[in-house]
């Protein structure tokens, strides 16, 4: 007789690895990441023409200080992508995670498999979070290279007129990646909650993007200023504080804490829905 069967759980590490492998193996993921890499290149070329054409200023805001200051490009690109492109990316992965599986009928298999539903949600969320961080880091990396080629410069000129040396400049870029990622996580968590409620990935993406756009529009009305502190989009513009020196941290903390609340709400709603779902 063989040894009695011991109920063993699949190790968490292997589950996380296999989830990431699943996402990466999809051709649309690879194509999407490739498309994201094009954003900094196109933005860089556009700014290069603007700077080349006439005086040093490439436009309003951050574009004004980009001439000879290539390390600003990653920050510029991430802020360019934050209002629409990155929330879309987060929503796509969240939609694939639960609604996509549900559409293919594979979620049913996962639900009756001997892993807890909360663990399923954790693994799926981990996949979305990691891929978001990876995509944003990839964009920043491509932007650093593009900026160095097109604009040069070894330091980073801040909006305050001081120049950071290479090390602190890279730290600022890393901070920007982190802050932007946390904001996208906030959006993606809400997308996860929607994803748990439907089996149509398109609904998840449409609902998430509509939400982001409506939030942005609500932010424009001054009469609704009592509502603004609750909207995740409110502080996206103030993330530009990372380009000021000395670094003012208040708005950065506040925006991250706000996104943290959205993550908590989104994942809790998703957990509630998954726990009560019949197979």
């Amino acid at each position: 007789m063989s040894a009695p069967l011991v109920a063993t759980r699949a190790p968490l590490g292997r589950q996380l690895r296999s989830e990431l492998r699943w996402i990466i193996r999809r051709p649309r993921t690879v194509i999407g990441l490739f498309g994201l890499c094009l954003v900094p290149i196109l933005a860089g070329i556009g700014l290069w023409f603007a700077v080349d054409d006439g005086d040093a200023s490439g436009g309003p805001g951050l574009a004004a200080i980009i001439g000879g200051n290539g390390l600003v490009l990653p920050v510029f690109t991430l802020f360019l992508a934050l209002p629409l492109l990155l929330p879309l990316v987060g929503a796509i992965w969240a939609a694939d995670g639960l609604a996509g599986e549900s559409q293919h009928g594979t979620l049913r298999g996962l639900m009756i498999a001997p892993i807890g539903r909360m663990r399923l949600l954790a693994v799926k969320s981990f996949g979305v979070a990691t891929m978001t961080l990876f995509a944003i880091t990839l964009m920043a990396f491509v932007a650093v290279i593009t900026g160095a080629i097109l604009f040069g410069g070894t330091g980073m000129l801040t909006l305050s007129g001081t120049t950071l040396s290479f090390g602190p400049a890279l730290a600022r870029i890393a901070l920007t990646i982190l802050l932007v990622t946390v904001q996208v996580w906030g959006v993606a968590a809400i997308a996860m909650a929607i994803s748990a409620c439907t089996e149509h990935p398109l609904v998840v993406m449409a609902a998430t993007m509509a939400g982001v756009i409506v939030f942005a529009v609500l932010g424009l009305f001054e009469a609704l200023d009592w509502l603004h502190p609750y909207l995740i989009t409110t502080y996206w513009n103030s993330l530009i504080d990372v380009m000021r020196d000395p670094l003012p941290t208040e708005a950065l903390w506040r925006s991250s804490a706000l996104a943290g609340c959205y993550i908590l709400i989104g994942l809790s709603l998703a957990a509630m829905r998954l726990a009560t779902k019949d197979n």
């Binding site: 909360m118 609340c261 993550i263 908590l264 709400i265 809790s268 709603l269 957990a271 509630m272 726990a275």
Partner: peptide, 13 residues
Amino acid sequence: TVVAAAVGVVAGV
């Protein structure tokens, strides 16, 4: 699980 999740939502709000 449902109760814990509900607490999470309330805490977030």
